[in-house]
Amino acid sequence: MVWFRRAGRESRVPEGLWVKCEGCREILYRKELEASLYVCPKCGHHHRVSARVRLSQLLDGGNWKELFAGVSSADPLGFVDSKPYAERVKALRERGARHDAVLVAQGKLDGIRLIVAAMEYSFMGGSMGAAVGEKITRAIERCLKSSYPLVIVSCSGGARMQEGILSLMQMAKISAALARLHQAKIPYISVLTDPTTGGVTASYAMLGDLNIAEPGALVGFAGPRVIEQTIRQKLPEGFQRAEFLLEHGMVDLVVPRQELKETIARCLNHLT
């Protein structure tokens, strides 16, 4: 029995009775944190949640059907860094993350039939390889066929380096599918959560008819460290956070998690 765990490492949150808030360092009762959708009741910090938790928060009755579950990552480059990429993926899958870095589901949100893709940060930083690219593209194609609206909840460091140029091309593949969705006038809501950077931001995460960010989420193209190295100075407080993006006109709304489902429903009801 684990008595104490840091929140934020989503897969571990449910294990302990008590967790420490990543924002204010207060000790929180796990049940209470879970009931508040992993938003700290003391400081409002939005903890990262797994794709499953995300879907259960958004979809009615926690009722949904996983789509494209059979798609998983290959190792087209034979990539090896400190450990072979193929082994890395195998180990993660054996630990239970069988859906790679995105979980696609069909379900209802406030009675609206739709498809939701939720990214899994604990799977290699939510990075986008060809499996992620394929599942999201199929999700878009399914929306085109069924006229269901699409919601993608992004949480990703960007393209998956271990798949090289083929991960970069997922940006083009998914964006091309989104062009079709755009022309078919089917709503797509992009939800940006902490963190969303790199090739994910520079493709589908910024292409929503509506872009909605969670409070405090880091959202950007280049990561803060890369920018600091380039300009050789410290970045200003709040740089690349959700509120910064709102101020600069890059997102429509910053919405606390407790209001996210209701906000998406209200927007979709206007658009469909």
Binding site: M171, A172, S175, A176, L178, A179, H182, T201, A202, S203, Y204, A205, M206, L207, V219, G220, F221, A222, I227, I231, L235, P236, F239, Q240, H248, G249, M250
Partner: peptide
């Protein structure tokens, strides 16, 4: 900083689409 402020990611994404 300026590139991020003006939406580098959005500009790239839009071009792809």
């Amino acid at each position: 900083i300026d590139a991020e402020e003006r939406g580098q990611a959005e500009a790239i994404a839009r071009n792809l689409r």
